[in-house]
Amino acid sequence: MFEDQRHSPKLLIGIVGGLIAVIALFLTYQWMMASNAEDLPPHQADAAPVKAAPAETVKPPAAAPEAVSTAAKLADEDILQAPVPENAALAKEEIAKLEDIQSQLNEQEKTLKAQHTDADQLIKLKEEQIKLLEAQLSQKP
């Protein structure tokens, strides 16, 4: 590029205009998505109050009292007494939702078990490190 092309006011106006257009498109997209979320029925708009699978599928370890309270929050007793939808499509949707929740719980169980084994390994390594440090301290006069 030549020196006069770098400091061209047309180039600067073009860049600023392009940035403003991109920002305007992004804000328009966000506004349209927000208005679409308001138009959906309440059961489709809210994904947060998804009910979990029964408590029998997740068994927390007896040593962690925090895990017991978490499992109680994950399993809701209302799901056992909830009536089965008469519409087959709604029933299939509910089954798919519950299967998704079950797969998420299974994945969470796997990661928690992996974290537990990693923590056990770290504890063993730290114990060995402490023994080595104690041995070094006992050797010094």
Results as ranks from 00 to 15, higher is better:
2 F>Y: 10
4 D>W: 06
4 D>F: 07
5 Q>G: 03
8 S>C: 05
9 P>L: 13
9 P>E: 07
11 L>E: 01
11 L>M: 02
12 L>T: 13
12 L>F: 15
12 L>K: 11
14 G>R: 04
14 G>H: 02
15 I>S: 00
17 G>E: 00
17 G>H: 03
20 I>F: 14
21 A>I: 13
22 V>I: 15
22 V>Q: 05
24 A>Q: 01
24 A>R: 00
24 A>L: 06
25 L>W: 10
26 F>E: 01
29 Y>T: 03
30 Q>R: 10
32 M>W: 07
33 M>T: 11
35 S>N: 09
35 S>M: 13
35 S>A: 13
36 N>F: 14
36 N>L: 15
37 A>Q: 10
37 A>P: 00
38 E>C: 07
41 P>D: 01
41 P>I: 03
42 P>Y: 04
42 P>L: 12
42 P>E: 07
45 A>L: 07
46 D>G: 04
47 A>Y: 11
49 P>Y: 01
50 V>G: 04
50 V>L: 08
50 V>E: 05
51 K>G: 04
54 P>V: 01
54 P>E: 01
55 A>G: 07
56 E>P: 06
56 E>W: 11
57 T>F: 03
58 V>K: 04
58 V>H: 02
59 K>N: 06
60 P>F: 01
61 P>M: 01
62 A>S: 07
62 A>L: 10
63 A>T: 03
64 A>K: 11
64 A>I: 15
65 P>V: 02
65 P>Q: 06
65 P>W: 08
66 E>H: 14
66 E>M: 11
66 E>K: 13
67 A>G: 01
67 A>I: 10
67 A>W: 05
68 V>Q: 13
69 S>M: 11
72 A>T: 05
73 K>M: 14
74 L>Q: 02
77 E>I: 15
79 I>F: 09
79 I>W: 08
80 L>P: 04
80 L>D: 12
81 Q>W: 10
82 A>G: 00
84 V>Y: 04
85 P>I: 09
85 P>Y: 06
89 A>H: 04
89 A>N: 08
90 L>D: 09
90 L>Q: 08
92 K>P: 01
93 E>I: 05
94 E>R: 15
94 E>I: 06
94 E>W: 15
95 I>Q: 00
97 K>H: 08
97 K>Y: 07
98 L>V: 08
98 L>Q: 12
100 D>L: 12
102 Q>T: 09
102 Q>V: 13
102 Q>F: 15
103 S>N: 13
103 S>E: 12
103 S>R: 12
104 Q>E: 08
106 N>D: 14
107 E>S: 04
107 E>M: 00
107 E>C: 02
107 E>W: 03
107 E>K: 02
108 Q>D: 13
109 E>K: 12
110 K>F: 06
111 T>R: 13
111 T>G: 02
112 L>V: 12
112 L>Q: 00
113 K>F: 12
113 K>C: 03
113 K>Q: 14
114 A>W: 10
115 Q>C: 11
116 H>P: 04
119 A>I: 10
119 A>M: 13
119 A>Y: 14
119 A>V: 05
119 A>C: 05
120 D>F: 04
120 D>E: 15
121 Q>N: 14
121 Q>V: 11
122 L>W: 15
124 K>I: 06
124 K>R: 03
126 K>C: 00
126 K>I: 05
127 E>G: 07
128 E>D: 10
129 Q>C: 06
131 K>V: 09
131 K>E: 12
132 L>A: 15
132 L>Y: 09
133 L>F: 07
133 L>R: 13
134 E>S: 02
135 A>V: 03
136 Q>N: 09
137 L>G: 03
140 K>P: 01
